[in-house]
Design a binder for these strands. Structure first.
Lengths: 265, 265
DNA sequence: TTTATCTGGTTCATTATTCAAACCATTGGT
DNA sequence: ACCAATGGTTTGAATAATGAACCAGATAAA
């Protein structure tokens, strides 16, 4: 792994629940030598991807991302398109919704909207990226990802987040086939206990999968009726997003086809 | 210069007027060897800062910035605070407004709003970062930047964008003194011909200058009356931004004090 | 006060990565 | 068929990254 990757992976340590980190912690968390860590951080800092603040001289994400994000949004609008649709979806289903994209070898959670209908709701748990094998979004994306990526992911040792997490590559592979068939991915408590989520993939203009929309509900609330409602609504949401972004589902992609097995695990 | 910096500087080649670049062009533009360029791009790509698209396999800014920007916005809200104020400022002055931040050693243009009052207006020209010595924002920031940064910038050879561009470090230094005195920076045609802009610095909670707000008008329209109006409005806008962000102007900072010389060049 | 242990930051010989110029394989135009 | 592009890959030679040890300062316990 190159130096640049190492530096960028340092950025992954910054999350919603831990937005600023000191040098020593950074070295500890990353396993990178402190001196190296320091050098990398100063380099990221001179570009502005990182800034150093406060008396404790902690590091955090810097202002350069604003420019990059603005540029990205200009050339490939996403947030402006997605957020209204996500909001509507949260409204119509009464549950938390989110959209994630495939960035490099990770599924990144880029936006989420909470519904205000229920007192209990699925919170986004300070996670910034979702596991391929244990989240409905990850599964949806993995199912439609290029062969190479899928194999690369499944070759890794997959962490077991809950007792329900499936980590056997063979079984996951079979499940991906099923997801490809139905167009919809589900995950029940496989990433977080008591969270049941439903996701559909998003395709870009070249019909390659670049993300997913998902609805996540507390397991206790996930009745057959709600599941049916979510599936219907999430499909229209996904189609709207793809239409506005110029995305085209690949040849023979079935959105919402009835699964051959009654109900996924 | 380290490898990481080199990789990140590659990102700077992507701009609004040139959002996607092929490998050969990238190597040409950066002066970096093609093989090196390729390796760096693939590393940036696996992180998602860059993505490769289309038949021509061109590179562009990738989806990872979305996550970083979201994180940044959560820990240090900026856009959500700044855009409404910028819009109001554009409204009340009838001219284009923008806000830029100091990121590393550059002034990055992070957001701009156009007024709809006039048929002619200053467009943001596809520039993503502004020169310190030839833009009102750059001057405002430079005037209040730490000594070290100021000297570093002035030690460089400063490009001459127009006949009006001042490139003599000594004269610029004198002008910075004046800007510090008045609190307001002006630039008339020094970056782009026929553009007259006014800027005031923004300070963070530790009273260090981290950006600037600016209003840019066509020179032809910049009357004394308009200038006075802009100055008044831009000051309130800057104060609003700082208030909402918890920014504190440094001890003895004079916003809108009358300049000792009637009118800057 | 002494001692111990944190912290951010620095040094320097060893080592591994990056560099540059060449070369491939395709593609598009003449 | 040719030429000039393109994206991508290989090669010894040069350069940069690395990590253990080391500061100096702050904090806290003894």
């Amino acid at each position: 792994m190159g130096t640049v990757s190492k530096a960028l992976e340092l950025l992954d340590l910054f999350r919603r629940d831990r937005p600023q980190i000191g040098l020593s912690d950074l070295a500890r968390l990353s396993g990178v030598n402190k001196a190296t860590c320091f050098r990398l951080m100063t380099e990221l800092q001179t570009y502005g991807l990182i800034e150093q603040i406060g008396a404790a001289r902690e590091y955090r994400i810097g202002p350069a991302v604003l420019r990059l994000a603005a540029l990205r949004e200009e050339v490939a609008p996403f947030k402006s398109v997605v957020v209204p649709i996500l909001t509507a979806l949260a409204e119509s289903t009464g549950e938390s919704t989110h959209v994630s994209v495939l960035a490099g070898d990770r599924v990144e959670l880029v936006h989420f909207v909470y519904s205000t209908q229920h007192g209990t709701r699925v919170m986004m748990h300070d996670a910034d990226h979702l596991p391929f094998h244990a989240s409905s979004s990850g599964l949806a994306i993995l199912a439609h990802a290029p062969e190479a990526l899928r194999e690369r992911i499944l070759a890794r040792k997959l962490p077991k987040f809950t007792p329900q997490t499936q980590t056997d590559p063979a079984i996951i592979r079979a499940r991906l086939d099923e997801i490809r068939r139905s167009g919809i991915a589900e995950s029940a408590g496989s990433f977080e206990e008591d969270v049941h989520s439903v996701a559909v993939p998003l395709f870009n203009a070249r019909s390659t999968c670049m993300g997913a929309v998902a609805v996540a509900a507390p397991s206790a609330r996930m009745s057959d009726a709600l599941r049916a409602r979510i599936k219907a609504e999430i499909i229209t949401a996904a189609l709207q997003i793809m239409q506005l972004r110029g995305g085209i589902p690949p040849e023979g992609f079935a959105l919402g086809a009835p699964p051959s097995i009654p109900s996924p695990p």
